[in-house]
Amino acid sequence: MTGFLQQLLNGLIIGSSYAVIGLGFGLVFGVMRVCNVAHAQFFVLGGYVGFLVGLPFVTLGGLPIAARVGMFVAVILAAVLFMGLVGLIVERIIVRPLRGTPVMIPFIATAGAATALQYSCQLIFGADPVLVPRFIPSTTFYFAGLSVTTAQLMTLIGMVAMLAGVQYYVLYTRWGQATRAVAEWPYVAAACGVNINRVFQITLSISAAAGALGGVLVSNMYASASPFMGDLFGTKAFICVLVAGNRKIEGMMLVGLLVGIAEALVAGYVSSSYRDAVAYLILLAILAFRPSGLFGSYED
């Protein structure tokens, strides 16, 4: 039983990262109907921004744990704000000019942006993974027979905070309600006085910020960042959105968590070689029986 619960916990931690990255991807897909291929690179850039901003501080020795936690939170905020700004720029120069064009056009444009970002990272930092120093010394906590490391715990807390924050924004704020209105009937929302461009800017910024948060936490958890780390995470997050459908943000989060848990269980009880196939199998099964996703799509 303890082994099962441990796999569940591991799955929840990795699933929370799929949920956050998928949430960013799904927000843009659901609200703007843009399949933003560059989203996985927001995740990568977030990892590198965290690495660059945090590096000088980490080398300072002898800091108390509270100061290190504070520093880590500051690094996360820096990465989130920086990538939020990148999101604004991407919306303005790539997505907005292509609004109203067939879905493949922004798909190709953002794929181009993804390639440019990925190779820029490779040019600056090299193709090999860089070692991301741990902000907080690695400690393992034990509770009721379960073990969790500091980095895993930070990842889980950060991801849950992001999911809760976005959920609060979307459900309870004025702009969040407007965002949901724009997702369904953009022109009707505009005729209510909602500035669609502003909604799209905010949406892409939140999406990029979610990617960045995922990047900082995951690179901290694995103590490494690479220009290609977005490929697998981005693909799985994309799959989570396809499985959930673009109608419900909470659905995308839930599917992210479930895919993570399913992967951990397969890795623990079948073979870790099959772990990465789990998401694809779930996708195939869902596409066969519910092509619009588990929670439906606005295009239904």
Binding site: R174, Q177, V194
Partner: peptide, 10 residues
């Protein structure tokens, strides 16, 4: 919430 969006500019 529909009505709140209707008054978005207010």
């Amino acid at each position: 919430a529909n009505l709140m969006v209707g008054a978005f500019a207010v």
